[in-house]
Simulated assay, not measured.
Amino acid sequence: MASHTYKFDVKMTCGGCSGAVDRALKKAKADGQEIDSWDISLEKQEVIVKGAVPYDTVLEKIKKTGKEVRSGETVE
């Protein structure tokens, strides 16, 4: 599968929120998901994920943290 970049608008109110998303993505990578990198911006309420992983898989991992995903898109 080709590598993609996804951008998600995630409602995060504190460092604990962004930390939960970070832990979920770390666990997904450890579990064998082909996630190359991610960047979480609490200020922008944005999570950018790069890798050869399906969009729905990444969305599901973020949603499992209990955070509200307001929108998401494939950037490239």
Rank of each mutant, 00 (worst) to 15 (best):
M1S: 14
M1K: 14
A2G: 08
A2L: 12
A2V: 13
A2D: 15
A2Y: 08
A2W: 10
S3V: 14
S3R: 12
H4V: 03
H4E: 14
T5M: 14
T5R: 15
Y6S: 05
K7N: 10
K7E: 15
K7W: 05
D9K: 12
K11P: 01
C14A: 07
G15A: 06
C17Y: 03
C17H: 05
S18W: 06
S18P: 04
G19T: 05
G19L: 03
A20E: 03
V21P: 01
V21G: 00
V21C: 01
R23A: 12
A24S: 11
L25V: 02
L25D: 00
L25K: 05
K26S: 10
K26F: 09
K26C: 08
K27D: 11
K27R: 14
K27N: 09
A28V: 02
A28H: 06
A28C: 07
K29V: 04
D31T: 01
D31M: 01
G32K: 11
G32T: 08
G32A: 06
G32V: 01
G32Q: 03
Q33A: 14
Q33K: 15
Q33R: 09
Q33M: 12
E34M: 10
E34N: 15
I35T: 03
D36Q: 11
D36W: 02
D36E: 15
S37M: 08
S37N: 13
W38L: 01
W38Q: 01
W38S: 02
D39G: 08
D39F: 14
D39I: 04
D39Q: 13
I40F: 01
I40V: 08
S41E: 13
S41P: 00
L42M: 11
L42T: 10
L42S: 03
E43H: 12
E43S: 11
E46P: 08
V47G: 07
I48W: 12
I48S: 14
V49P: 06
V49L: 02
V49F: 04
V49Y: 07
V49H: 05
K50R: 15
G51K: 07
G51E: 04
G51T: 02
A52V: 04
V53H: 09
V53D: 08
V53F: 11
P54K: 12
P54Y: 05
P54C: 06
Y55K: 15
Y55Q: 10
D56H: 11
T57P: 09
V58K: 03
V58D: 07
E60A: 15
E60S: 13
K61D: 09
K61C: 04
I62G: 10
I62K: 08
I62H: 03
I62M: 07
K63D: 09
K63Y: 09
T65F: 09
T65R: 06
G66R: 00
G66T: 09
K67P: 03
K67M: 12
E68Q: 11
E68C: 02
E68V: 12
E68M: 06
V69A: 03
V69D: 02
V69E: 08
R70T: 13
S71K: 11
S71W: 05
G72Y: 12
G72M: 07
G72D: 04
E73K: 14
V75D: 06
E76G: 14
E76R: 15
E76Q: 15
